[in-house]
Simulated assay, not measured.
Amino acid sequence: MSEIRVHGPDGRTAHQDLHSERGALRGEHPGRSRNPVIKVADLAWLEFEKPDLERAEVFARDFGFGVAARTESELWLRGTFAGTPCVVIRRGRGSSRFIGPAFRAAERADLDRLARATGADVRDVGVPGGGKAVDLLDPSAFPVRVVHCGEPLAALPEQQPLLLNSGTEHRRTNAAQRPPREPSRIQRLGHVVLETRVFAQALSWYLDTLGMIVSDFLFLDGQRDRGPTMAFVRCDLGSVPADHHTLAMHLGPGTGYVHSAYQVTDLDSMAAGGAYLKERGYRRSWGIGRHTQGSQLFDYWRDPDHFMLEHFADGDLFSCHVEPGWAPMSTSGLAQWGPPATRDFLGASPSPQRIREVIQALRGDNEMDPARLLGLLKATKS
């Protein structure tokens, strides 16, 4: 694919001075498709299956979700912003598992266009408020749903950001600061991170089929010539700024869910909510800190089924004019500040399941090989 560059009036490329010290080298992946089938507007929701909906609801409320709908077999969770629910958990008989993401189509006609291009059908989807969907499989065999919903959920009351005094700017006088110890109130779903053994194929699928564009690429030290091994991917809303990443994917020996992220009001909301979660007996995976790619404040937690969820605030917003940045993959590069990344967050513990995944990946027909595996192990220690 040929290189795409957008230049400013001084001749500098669009990514310079914005988010990355490095851009693409000549001939490297441009980070977007020239003629995508459609351009999705956002993530709509994520789908999970769990045997214990009661326990799932207790954690969801403690983490800061509201409940949009509840039946014997389904739990729909929402944030305070108007729009679609952000998580659906269906009752299952086996172990808990992630099903897949649902993306929001910008227009109803996009579903027809997508169905014609893929040979899929447009069908009703049982979301609160009603809607239509096209169901697909990505190259990693993840079910991916593209939806256009009917009646949006109304907005709920917000946690208000605290007024802060800064230097000589005194916005708060004769008033003390006392944020309540309560759950961080989730505003919306921000992004999902997936691991895949077929990174290049999966990335091309999301760019070509859903019209997403790359904000940042990461590559393994000494292996840049083999292409990137992680991408932070955003929706292409043209000149309207979008989240730095709505989807992130990285090459790995497994195929599955890594974490999902949910926006909260500000740092105080995040910290007070984290203190509340700790008092309730939940386990922090990593945080609080500020990421490098995406710049967001973060705090990661494990739910009772061991899924990782992130509270985030103050993330980057990019229009379509910003080109991908390129950086080496490393643990030290994950955050600008904060505690060191934990082994739990990195998935670096040598569990029996992880060992099986490595063996299967090295034996299978995919993008994992010994050099890639050693590079990934090196990145977790750098």
Rank of each mutant, 00 (worst) to 15 (best):
D42H: 14
A379Q: 03
A56F: 06
V134W: 10
P350C: 02
L362A: 01
L334M: 15
P143V: 01
A102Q: 02
L53Q: 08
G83I: 03
L374G: 01
K278L: 14
R280Q: 14
G190P: 00
G31E: 01
D10I: 02
I213K: 14
P324C: 01
R22D: 09
I38C: 07
G325C: 04
E323F: 04
L247I: 10
L376S: 05
R178H: 13
A133Q: 04
E47F: 05
G64D: 04
S285I: 13
H7N: 08
A105W: 00
S330K: 03
C149S: 13
W326Y: 15
K381L: 13
L237I: 01
A175M: 13
E28W: 09
H170T: 11
L220M: 11
E54V: 15
D10L: 11
W45Q: 02
Q160L: 12
G126P: 07
R70D: 02
R26V: 11
H321P: 00
C86G: 07
G167A: 03
Q159N: 12
C320K: 10
H259Y: 14
A335M: 07
F48I: 03
L153I: 00
V198D: 08
R284S: 12
T118Q: 05
R185N: 04
P30L: 06
P241Y: 06
R181I: 15
L207T: 05
R32P: 04
D17E: 14
L162A: 14
V146Y: 02
G375W: 10
I99R: 08
V87S: 01
F59P: 00
P352E: 02
D314S: 12
M270D: 07
R224I: 00
D369G: 05
R290H: 05
A133L: 01
P9I: 09
T265M: 15
G11P: 05
Q353C: 03
L277I: 07
R343T: 07
L377A: 09
I4K: 08
T380D: 12
H170D: 11
S349G: 10
A313L: 05
T331W: 04
Y206D: 02
L334V: 01
P370F: 02
